[in-house]
Nucleic acid binder design. Structure first.
Lengths: 122, 122, 122, 122
DNA sequence: GTGGTCTAGACCACC
DNA sequence: GTGGTCTAGACCACC
C-alpha cells in the first residue's frame, strides 16, 4: 500500500504531525514493514511545507527504529511486528484514556460508559 | 458555582466554542439551572473578543432554551434537568463515537476496546 | 566548572562534534550534573556557527537524557552518575579498540602493545 | 606485494599523507624492501593529484633512505630491516601515546587502561 | 534523482 | 533574555 498523508493543521508542530501520521498508518495496517515513504522533497511538495520539516520527522522515525534509510534511496518502513503492536497498543491506550476522561467528567460510571460505547460501536 | 471560560483557540468559530463550553459545563454539573453567566460585555473583556460574538453565542443558547435573559439583568441558566441529561448523553455519544472510530481503525474489536477502556478507566 | 567548547574542525558534522565534546567533558569530569550549558545563541556566537546547529546538538543530548531544558532557561546537565560512567566506559572502549587495531596492524602482540603503552603512560 | 594507496582526505598536506601511507604499509609488512612503488605519473593519475605532489613525497622518502630510485626506472623500497623496525616502533609509540592521553583524560589509571585494552584486544 | 548538513533569518511562547 | 519551529535555499556525497 502507498502511504497517504494529510495536510498538517492546527497548533501541533508540523514535524510531529507527520511522525504521528506514520505511526497511525502503521498501527492501522495501512503501512507495512518494507514499504517506502515518499522522498523528503516529494512529501514536502505534496504537503506544501519545507523539506527540512519532513527531514526532521523522518529523522525521528529513524531514531525510533521505525524508518530505515539507505544512501540515495527512499526511506523504508523498518518497524518490527512487535514495535507495530506496541504503537497500536499505545494509540489505543491514548484514545481510551481520552474517552474515559471525558465520560467521567460527564459523571458517567464505567457501566454507563461501556453502554454508550456499545451503542456507538457501529 | 461560577461559570469559567477558557480563551477560544484553533479554527472553530469562537461563538460555537462558547456555546460548547456552556454545554460541557452543564453536562459536567459545573453549571446548574438558576446560575448566572457573566454579562456579554464582561465575558467579551475576559476572553478579549468582540461583545457581538458573545451575543451570538448567548442568542443560540437562548434559542435552545438553555439560557434565559430577563430585562436588564444577567442571563441565567434555564435548562431543564431533562435537557441537561440530553446534553450529557449527546456529549457522551460524541466521545464514544470518536473512541470507537479510533479503536476500529486500529483493528480492535469491541471486546478489546472495552478491555483497554477498563485498563485506562483510572 | 564552566563548559568549554572548541571550534569544530574537519569533516565530522558540526552538531555531532558538539555532542561529542559534551560527552567527553562529562566523562572527563570537566562537566557535572546540574551545571548549565551556554545558551544556543551564545554558543553559536562563540563557535561562529548557526544557532540551529547548536539546537540540533542540544536536542540530541536531550533525547539521550544528558541534557534537560526548562522553559526560557539555560539547558542543564541531567545525566545520571550511571549514565556518565557508561559514557566514560564507552569512550575508553573506543580509544582502546583504536589502539588495539593500530598495534595489531603493526604486528604487535598483546604483550608488546602493553609494553609500549607502559613506556608512553607518562 | 603491491603497494596500495588511498585517496588523500582532510586537511593534512597531500604529500605528507603519501609519505605516511608508505611508512604505515612498511611497518605493517604490506610493503617490503625491494618492492617497487608506482611511477610518479601513475600514482598521480590514480589519486587524481598533481605529479609534482607525488614527486615531493617520493623525494622525502628518498632522503630518509626508505626509497631508492635508479635511472629511468621505478622507485624501489630500500629501507633496512632496522629502519622498518624503527618506523614500526615510532608508529606504535604514537598510537600508545594517543590512547594513554585519552584514557588518562577519562580518569583511568594504568591498570584500568590495560584492562580495557585486554577486553578490546579482540 | 536520493538523503544529510548547514546557514540565515523569521516568528512563536514564556519570563 | 530563553528555547522551539519553520522556511528558503545552498552545498555536499552517493548513484
Amino acid at each position: 500500500m502507498q502511504a497517504e498523508f494529510e495536510k498538517p493543521t492546527g497548533n501541533e508542530p508540523v514535524y510531529l504531525q507527520i511522525v504521528n501520521q506514520v505511526r497511525c498508518q502503521l498501527a492501522a495496517g495501512r503501512l507495512s514493514p518494507g514499504e517506502p515513504l515518499p522522498s523528503r522533497r516529494e512529501l514536502a511538495m505534496t504537503l506544501e511545507i519545507n523539506p527540512n520539516t519532513v527531514q526532521k520527522a523522518y529523522k525521528i522515525l529513524e531514531e525510533q527504529g521505525i524508518l530505515s534509510t539507505a544512501q540515495s534511496s527512499h526511506s523504508v518502513i523498518s518497524a518490527s511486528d512487535e514495535q507495530i503492536a506496541e504503537i497500536r497498543r499505545s494509540l489505543a491506550r491514548d484514545a481510551a484514556r481520552e474517552f474515559a476522561a471525558k465520560a467521567r467528567s460527564l459523571g458517567l460510571d464505567f457501566r454507563e460508559a461501556m453502554r454508550v460505547l456499545g451503542d456507538e460501536w457501529e
